[in-house]
């Protein structure tokens, strides 16, 4: 799987997907995905709508548990520990693996309360003000909001709200941050800011990002996984992993024709 084209020491595997299939009731949404996600890298999941990339993303922090009837077959491990083992508390998983959603979703609370929410529910013992400032600085939002921390998070612009949500995710001190199309509701300037931020965050966190924007994938990611969907005999569509490699390989020299067609816009 690892290409010799970009010679560098193989980084540590954080999340490992082994033959995972994801079901909603009896409907199989994603089949037989196997991939490794490496520490301090940005991994992009791309593919057409309905190919299961968001579904897979939501399995990494067990957010799919909230969907009735959702289940995972195969194995998804986090630092070697099976995420779906009986003794794993999904609440604990989500504290380690944070998430940023497609639509900015600050709580209807003050900016301050939004950022320290995770710390409060995690019974964080340290200094809340310090945590607030470091989180907002890491999210490149501190200068814009430092004078109005008591104002509602909903008073911010869309791009600021999304950075607030990133700050909120950082403040729980996660290890991995999952981003589900974080820029799809934002204008190009806000998008650029978030992308710069992703570059910064990579130093400290492992990032998995779902995106529909292929330029974004080339700009922010180190590795890219291309997913596609195919019709099954029951008339449903099931998503599967086509190709996973360094981003430069996926976009310049993919091994699969489907990948080539998709990244060059000849998808159909």
């Amino acid at each position: 799987m690892i290409m010799t084209r970009n010679p560098q020491p193989t980084p540590k595997v954080v999340l490992q997907v082994q033959n995972a299939s994801i079901f909603y009731g009896s409907f199989r949404a994603v089949r037989d995905v196997t991939m490794d996600i490496y520490a301090n890298e940005v991994t992009a999941l791309i593919g057409p709508s309905g190919c299961g990339k968001s579904t897979l993303l939501r399995c990494f922090n067990r957010m799919n548990d909230l969907v009735p009837g959702a289940r995972v077959e195969g194995k998804i491990t986090y630092h070697g520990k099976d995420l779906y083992a009986r003794d794993v508390d999904p609440v604990e998983v989500r504290r380690r693996i944070g998430m940023v959603f497609q639509k900015p979703n600050p709580f209807p609370k003050s900016i301050y309360d939004n950022v320290v929410f995770g710390a409060r529910v995690n019974k964080y013992k340290g200094d809340f003000d310090e945590l607030l400032e470091t989180s907002l600085r890491q999210a490149a939002l501190w200068d814009e909001v430092k004078d109005k921390l008591q104002e509602s998070g909903l008073s911010l612009s869309g791009g600021q709200q999304q950075r607030l949500c990133i700050a909120r995710a950082i403040a729980t001190k996660p290890d991995v941050i999952l981003m589900d199309e974080p820029c799809s509701a934002l204008d190009p300037i806000s998008t650029l800011k978030i992308e710069e931020l992703i570059h910064e965050l990579k130093q400290n966190y492992t990032i998995v990002i779902v995106t529909h924007n292929m330029q974004q994938a080339t700009r922010v990611s180190d590795r890219t996984a291309f997913f596609n969907a195919e019709a099954t005999e029951q008339g449903n569509r099931v998503g599967y992993l086509v190709e996973y490699d360094h981003t430069s390989v996926i976009f310049n020299n993919p091994k699969q024709k489907a990948t080539m067609d998709y990244v060059s816009g000849r998808f159909g």
Partner: peptide
């Protein structure tokens, strides 16, 4: 999204 946001931050 309010519920999802809270759950994703590790709230019970």
């Amino acid at each position: 999204y309010l519920r999802q946001g809270a759950m994703a931050l590790g709230a019970t």
